[in-house]
């Protein structure tokens, strides 16, 4: 799906990406992991072919340097922070990108629906919360249903609950068969989403491995579906959000994303608020054991 051969990119004298190569199969998910300034963002931009670089990148066999436009049509991109014109309205913004992606107004509406932003079309971009902006960016990235999603620190500007939301959305996309490439410096995201990690340092590839090898004892995020009494979904969601959990309401029930080692916490919180949990179910089962996670989602 994606092939990166000896990519090198230098800005004046600073080498941001130094002779990086990797390949990624369709449906794979890959994290570029490293500290700030390791060259993750630059690598992602090379992948998108937005500026010249040495080496080559092909996306579905298409050279991004020669046919960048076509290559990018297979990629949905989510930037670190949504960069829309602040004065523009949400509806107009997504329609603009819909036009660039050659999809119709209906698809734009579907995309907004999918990220729960319907009804906000008249809002100006500057009035959106960070989470809404990120969801809008996701909606844009998904406009033409591209096979590849590329994300640059997708959660860095979000609070904990927003982060959970995004991570969960991405997990669904991955499960739906999308190829995922993202830059991150948060181990929890990497563990939750990536099958493969490329560790970068000063532009160089240090290790090409899997999250479980990199953090064998790390507790990943799991999503729990709670089955509650009729009509208490809304109030339960409010209570959980109050407690700092990432909550997601859909037709089937209420989903909470928590770290593996804290699965009981939402139930306890709800119990305290006298909301009865009839049942719960763990949606994702990432094989990982241990409970020594020093970082978690909340």
């Amino acid at each position: 799906m994606i092939q990166v051969f000896h990519v090198t990119k230098a800005f004046q004298r600073v080498v941001a990406v130094d002779d990086l190569s990797f390949e990624l199969e369709q449906g794979g998910s890959l994290a570029l992991w490293g500290s700030n300034g390791a060259g993750k963002t630059t690598m992602i931009r090379c992948l998108l072919g937005v500026f010249p670089f040495r080496g080559s990148v092909t996306v579905k066999g298409i050279d991004v340097k020669k046919h960048g436009k076509q290559a990018r049509s297979f990629i949905g991109y989510v930037p670190q922070e949504l960069a829309f014109h602040d004065d523009a309205r949400l509806g107009a913004s997504i329609l603009f990108f819909a036009r660039l992606r050659k999809v119709g107004r209906e698809d734009a509406a579907v995309a907004l629906d999918a990220v729960g932003l319907r009804g906000h079309e008249r809002k100006r971009v500057r009035d959106l919360s960070g989470g809404m902006k990120q969801r809008l960016a996701l909606a844009v990235a998904l406009l033409a249903d591209p096979p590849i999603i590329v994300l640059d620190e997708p959660t860095s500007n979000l609070d904990a609950s927003g982060r959970g939301e995004v991570v969960e959305s991405l997990a669904r996309l991955r499960d739906a068969g999308k190829t995922l490439v993202f830059a991150s410096h948060r181990p929890d995201e990497v563990v939750s989403l990536a099958e493969r990690v490329i560790m970068m340092e000063r532009g160089k590839l240090i290790r090409d491995t899997t999250p479980s090898k990199l953090w064998p004892a790390y507790a990943p995020v799991q999503t729990i579906r709670l089955y509650l009494s009729e009509g208490t979904d809304e109030s339960a969601a409010a209570v959980l959000r109050e407690a700092g959990h990432a909550v997601n309401l859909n037709g089937h029930g209420l989903c909470v994303s928590v770290s593996r080692n804290r699965k009981a916490e939402p139930v306890a919180v709800l119990a305290k608020a006298s909301i009865i949990v009839r049942d719960f179910e763990v949606l994702e089962d990432i094989p990982a054991d241990g409970n020594a996670g020093s970082e978690d989602l909340t």
Binding site: L48, V50, K69, Y77, P79
Partner: peptide, 17 residues
Amino acid sequence: ERGTLLYVLAQPVSRVE
């Protein structure tokens, strides 16, 4: 300066366009 240029260039468009 606003960072929007990168975002539009990441879409399937060419610089000429």
